[in-house]
Design a binder for these strands. Structure first.
Lengths: 331, 331
DNA sequence: CTGTTAGCGCTTTCAC
DNA sequence: GTGAAAGCGCTAACAG
């Protein structure tokens, strides 16, 4: 058995309470005794029990994060960012992985509730809109990322992100610009597509329906969509992709067709996941402000825990990262 | 406050003990009462408290995982695999992220100990050999991955992996084969390099020292190493890389030089991380048996918890995944 | 400044 | 088959 406060108390010849205070650096305990107690604790290899403390204080300083398997680039980055901010605030992170299934997602949340996490963050939520209200009744703050329909959410401005991406291409003189969507997140897809359409029309470029294709949001889908686009009589000179994974699939298809990026076709992704700079060529992509999102999410959670009303649907703006997958349209 | 067993007991007109038993499906409680209790629990929205149970049983059914930030592909995959097996065994996973610094790694472990995790797994350990013994004295099982020097470890046969990779290239008639190492994991690097050298000598191919370069184990390092190799008077026709990240950097350098993969140069990676199939072209790479590694690691941990002596340095073999980045040498 | 006391929510003997 | 009681390790009033 690991040493407990009781053990320390015995050795130090004081009560548990004093030990507790000393270890918490309470000013209400004699400086000498305090120091002595801490020394003894160290010598005895004392490791405080977070679960016992949790039981007593009804706060575990623990944050639950639900992610969908498999970790894809954006999610992994997000977990990273969340973890970083969480530990800055003295929080540990419990990871609960679920499959691509709303029911398993709910189950993952239940598991976290059993662990009595103080709050839950879901970077890639797939819960149905109809179950959203239920999430607020759950007892602990649940924050969703990129889910504007929910009261406690922080997300990226997809509309504007898509606009930035497409305008970048338009500025490079591209006109036949395609959009490869992804069904894995219908809301986000709709918004990004809308942003694409608006940018096009703002520049007076008529939208060609055949340039609007939709895959599954994974590399395979991106690849087959791109193949479809390449088979067009008049193929696009640029493509804007739902996310970086889709873009990687597109890159493969273009390469297989014997074409070059960006000379023959420019490609833009979305997310600026850790995958983006590794691709050949390094991908131009819209960066979601992941760090800020994580910080905001945690802020909402902590405010809620402190009893403040933190209802907020925060929408952050990101910025385009221009790398080497885009260039001026050369007809 | 969430409903507790006490609440249920009051409503059901029984004692807490009976509720506890009923909820645990103990046969020692009357079938009818048991069912009734479980119904009440459900109706009251009861969520058991894992931390209270943990306090009482001194088992938290919780597994700690320490990973180095940033999550790179292999680690993320490993966390996935560990999580999957863990939840198969009814375990939750607490993630503790540390920087690339042994001290912070130890700190991450401490944090997990406070949470009273039942065991700890470290997929990419960077603790010094000299601190290894300390890990065994820590109170809970600590399993390291890919760290043969440690008593409780499971890893991949790096020597054989490198051999497989290089022999694949040799069979494709390559002779000028380079190795791009990575210092981020000295042990593994040494082993993979050794495997490379042995395969070469087994085939009677004299090793050219100028074909042996070493980077940092990240894409940037891979890129600059590859540039160095391309500047050689007689450049290699194939490169074997320390890991997939390095390979992605190499791919970029080759692309920038106006050369093609695999026609001009074949490239082999290591790990078969989720990055590999996304690259252009999809990367031939040696696959570590991640699922098996996770399973074995958990098995050791559970055996240890059950009081068995599970000392074992398990070395698993993996297999080469041939994709499109390698082809026959065309002189 | 320190001790006493009472839980936090659950499990687990030991009785009945 | 069920209850009573003790305890897991810690915190937090409340006294003194």
């Amino acid at each position: 058995m690991p040493t407990s406060m009781k053990d320390i108390a015995r050795v130090a010849g004081v009560t548990e309470s004093t030990v507790s205070r000393a270890l918490a650096n309470s000013p209400r305990v004699n400086a000498d005794t305090s120091m002595r107690i801490r020394r003894i604790a160290r010598e005895m290899g004392y490791v405080p029990s977070a679960i016992a403390r949790g039981l007593a204080t009804r706060r575990t300083s623990t944050l639950g994060v639900v992610v969908m398997e498999p970790f894809e680039a954006f999610t992994a980055d997000m977990v990273n960012a969340i973890n970083r901010t969480a530990s800055d605030h003295g929080y540990s992170v419990i990871l609960s992985v679920c499959g691509p299934d709303p029911e398993r997602e709910m189950n993952a949340i239940r598991l976290l509730l059993e662990q009595r996490v103080d709050a839950i963050v879901v970077p890639d939520p797939l819960v149905a809109d109809s179950s959203l209200p239920q999430l607020q009744q759950i007892g602990v703050p649940v924050i969703l990322l990129n889910r504007g329909a929910y009261t406690f959410s922080v997300g990226t401005d997809n509309l504007d992100g898509a606009r930035q991406a497409v305008e970048h291409l338009l500025e490079l003189a591209h006109r036949r610009i395609a959009y490869i969507g992804g069904t894995r997140s219908p809301d986000e897809n709709t918004q990004r597509q809308e942003g694409y359409l608006r940018a096009m029309s703002a520049w007076g470029v008529p939208a060609d329906p055949s340039l609007l294709v939709v895959g599954d949001g994974w590399p395979a889908g991106g690849k087959s969509c791109m193949e479809q686009l390449l088979a067009l009589d008049e193929r696009p000179t640029a493509v804007f992709c739902f996310n970086d994974l889709v873009a990687s699939g597109a890159l493969q298809a273009i390469h297989n067709a014997g074409l070059r990026v960006p000379q023959d076709i420019s490609v833009v992704g979305f997310d600026d996941s850790s995958l983006a700079p590794c691709l050949v060529p390094p991908l131009t992509t819209f960066a979601q402000p992941k760090e800020t999102m994580a910080r905001m999410a945690l802020r909402i959670a902590l405010d809620l825990l402190d009893g403040y009303d933190a209802s907020a649907r925060i929408i952050l703006s990101g910025k385009l990262i221009v790398r080497e997958s885009t260039t001026r349209c050369s007809p």
